[in-house]
């Protein structure tokens, strides 16, 4: 149990850990804007800044899951708006494959998400993080060990 849930009442409520990769030019700025606009949202996401969503190596996502993240969020500029012309398309391309891989690993699709959030959309950062936290909370903690056992058991049975 994470050390920020000391009291008993909180223990009952599962607090998902979300690792978020935000691009420097759109989504990171949107998160800054949410801050300067004093919007309030769930404190579950930990933002890691990358220059472009195209920098998000699928290994980062897998590593995050392996190290205990319950969900991974990638935020980039809207199609056509990438600061580097088309890095977000590269991110989308990889994301499509990655989502299938993640599904095959037994990880629910709702745990991984790619969102286009422009520098003006502070409210969208709030909405997306709140929504993702709720969805992942409903799924419960990601237990890769059990998942792996289930998959191999199913393979044996087959």
């Amino acid at each position: 149990m994470p050390d920020h849930q000391p009291d008993v009442s909180a223990k009952a409520r599962f607090e998902p850990r979300i690792v978020a990769f935000f691009c420097n030019w759109c989504t990171y700025l949107a998160a800054d804007l949410a801050g300067t606009s004093r919007m309030k949202y769930a404190p579950n996401a930990r933002v890691i800044r990358v220059m472009c969503s195209g920098r998000v190596d699928p290994q980062f996502v897998l590593d995050a899951f392996a190290r205990g993240a319950d969900g991974v969020l990638i935020g980039g500029c809207h199609p056509g708006d990438c600061h580097y012309q088309e890095g977000n398309y590269k991110a989308l391309r990889r994301f499509r494959l990655l989502r299938r891989l993640v599904r095959d690993l037994g990880i629910e699709e709702e745990r991984i998400r790619l969102e286009w959030i422009s520098a003006a959309e502070g409210d969208r950062v709030r909405a997306v993080i709140d929504d993702m936290v709720e969805k992942v909370r409903a799924l419960g903690p990601l237990d890769l060990k059990t998942t792996a056992q289930e998959i191999s058991a199913a393979e044996v049975a087959a």
Partner: peptide, 26 residues
């Protein structure tokens, strides 16, 4: 970034402080 991404967007002091600890550790 513990202002725009933490103190300005969260109300729960314990959870906010925990988030800053995670970020500082990283």
């Amino acid at each position: 970034n513990i202002r725009e991404h933490v103190s300005w967007v969260h109300l729960d002091k314990a959870a906010a402080t925990q988030k800053t600890k995670d970020l500082v550790r990283a």
